[in-house]
Amino acid sequence: MKSELLKALNLGRTEGRPVALATLLDDGGQWLIDESSDGGGPEVIALLARTAIVEDRSQVVDCEGATLFIQVHNPPLRMVVVGAVHIAQALSPMAARTGYRVTVIDPRGAFATEERFPGVDISNEWPDEALRRIRPDGRTAVVTLTHDPKLDDAALQVALSSDAFYIGSLGSKKTHRARLNRLERLGFDKTACDRIHGPVGLHIGAESPAEIAVAILAEITQTRHMAAKLALSQGPTV
């Protein structure tokens, strides 16, 4: 790979643009493709690369008899954690390690501090304001952990109006039922409310904050890969 091509690839990744590197394995021919550029290569290769970007899947494909490898670099997954609580302290580094760009939101300044969350994006805005700014998309997970309806419900209302691929909310079954009742009174129907995973996380008997974080991250991972498989079986959407 030419250094210039690697630099252009890294620039696209840094800027958060979906890009794909197409490589002919037989002769090493390489092109960088994004939404607006075919990298100076053949149109057929750009088309295959853009399809792979939509599928979010790096893959080897047959390109007019030649073997073409397409490596997809989509923008990072994001996780928005509402509530800078103990579980969030365990969840944030695990999520970062799993490939998520993590933002922790908590208007209570004593909770969301750099000291408690080193290296994490912290917001002291109200959760609904912060989420409206962040704009969760199909590569974003939203987890509420405050236990406080004032904060959690505000976040959930914005999350339910977004394309977030995962929405989870901490709380017992009883707390969750009460939460759903409140959301229904606000006009969210059953289909919308069913998007909320609650009680949050896979049922693995988690007790400590770190164990609960594992359960949450496992459920998010499961949702992400199941959703991707479902989308693939329905074919490309573009």
Partner: peptide, 26 residues
């Protein structure tokens, strides 16, 4: 949160910029 230490492509570019011989396996 910083994940740069795990960013293979960023490290590949940085090593090359230092003048090292670099290869990438995928």
């Amino acid at each position: 949160m910083a994940t740069d230490l795990e960013d293979v492509l960023a490290v590949a570019a940085a090593w090359r910029a230092e003048g090292r011989g670099v290869a990438l396996a995928t």
